[in-house]
Amino acid sequence: MTRDRDDVMATPDGYLVATPANSAELQAAREHAAELVARFRKGRGYRESEPEFGMMRPDRRASGADG
């Protein structure tokens, strides 16, 4: 099988290797993830919640919700 350089050869963890049966789905999944993460990083909340080293101040009520 020949591939373009940008084709997905495998998932980053190596669990799934691209085959003719799954390569289109893996390619679509990588593109979907890239779009999702790009949108996520653009958010104001993302920028506000990114800590400087040593500056984290967790809200105890927030962690309490995890029960």
């Binding site: 998932t11 669990y15 990588r30 993830a33 996520f40």
Partner: peptide
């Protein structure tokens, strides 16, 4: 589910 294979640990932790 498959897009989860391409989420980096740092982005997951940021989320």
């Amino acid at each position: 589910v498959l897009p989860g294979a391409f989420i980096q640990a740092a982005d997951y932790e940021a989320a």
